[in-house]
């Protein structure tokens, strides 16, 4: 394998897909974040922690513009990071993935990873806008969320390995096994300890946009890595002539 080419196309695919994610979120998620942070501001005014002044709003607007730039920047960092994991798994599993070309294979793997390390954990611990979530519980919530992702990811891997021991329709048993196992984990894991006090239409709208943004990332990641893999073929050695 051409190691450097492999690493470069994996990181490039992740960064580009992350750019798609961050940019999409400017339109999908930011309007909801602005409303949620507006509620936080009103709480600050009513509690006397801040004064509703022109200076406050000027500073606030400047700060939010900086954070929206950070949305795209963080998208690239997170995209590169998740893309690195995706690249490792794609390289190791490419021959086992269904599909007659690398774009299809990458999209199928992206779909599997979207389901197992994003959507299934999301169903237990859904994304929340600002105003939902206590600072005191952030460490606990982080541990719970990361644990659920890890359990779901490793369970998917284990049941995939198990499926290779079966033939034809019996392979579906592994899928059922994963579903049953994750259902048990879903029930066993503690709930998010924070109470939701924000309006539910805001929370639900934010969650839908969050799913759309992350889904755009995984779709872009599969397509871009598949295209780059086809173009640069990092799994092939440079031809040697004797």
């Amino acid at each position: 394998m051409k190691t450097i080419i492999f690493i470069i196309i994996v990181l490039a695919a992740g960064a580009l897909a992350g750019l798609v994610h961050g940019t999409a979120n400017l339109f999908l998620v930011e309007p909801y974040l602005d409303v949620a942070i507006g509620i936080e501001n009103q709480n600050l005014f009513s509690s006397g922690q801040e004064d509703d002044t022109l200076e406050f709003w000027v500073e606030y607007e400047r700060y939010r513009e900086w954070q929206k730039g950070g949305q795209v920047f963080a998208g690239v960092i997170l995209g590169t990071s998740i893309g690195a994991l995706f690249g490792i798994i794609f390289a190791l599993s490419r021959n086992s993935l269904p599909g007659n070309n690398n774009i299809k294979k990458a999209l199928i793997l992206a779909g599997i990873m979207w389901l197992t390390i994003y959507l299934v954990p999301f169903l237990k611990y859904p994304a929340n806008p600002p105003t939902v979530g206590e600072a005191d519980t952030v460490v606990l919530r982080s541990i719970l969320y990361l644990s659920f992702i890890a359990i779901s990811g490793f369970a998917a891997l284990a049941f995939f390995k198990l499926s290779k021991k079966f033939k034809n329709q019996k392979k579906l048993l592994a899928l059922f096994g994963y579903a049953i196992f994750m259902a048990m984990v879903f029930v066993a894991m503690p709930e998010n300890p924070d109470e939701i006090t924000a309006p539910m239409d805001l929370v639900n709208g934010f969650r839908i946009m969050s799913i759309l943004g992350v889904s755009a990332y995984w779709t872009a990641l599969g397509i871009i890595l598949g295209i780059l893999w086809n173009r640069f073929k990092p799994n092939k050695e440079v031809p040697s002539f004797n």
Partner: peptide, 16 residues
């Protein structure tokens, strides 16, 4: 934390 705040929420990570 503040720079990545919006993506942290949008990607589903726990935040304050």
């Amino acid at each position: 934390h503040e720079l990545t705040h919006d993506m942290r929420h949008a990607a589903g990570f726990p935040c304050h």
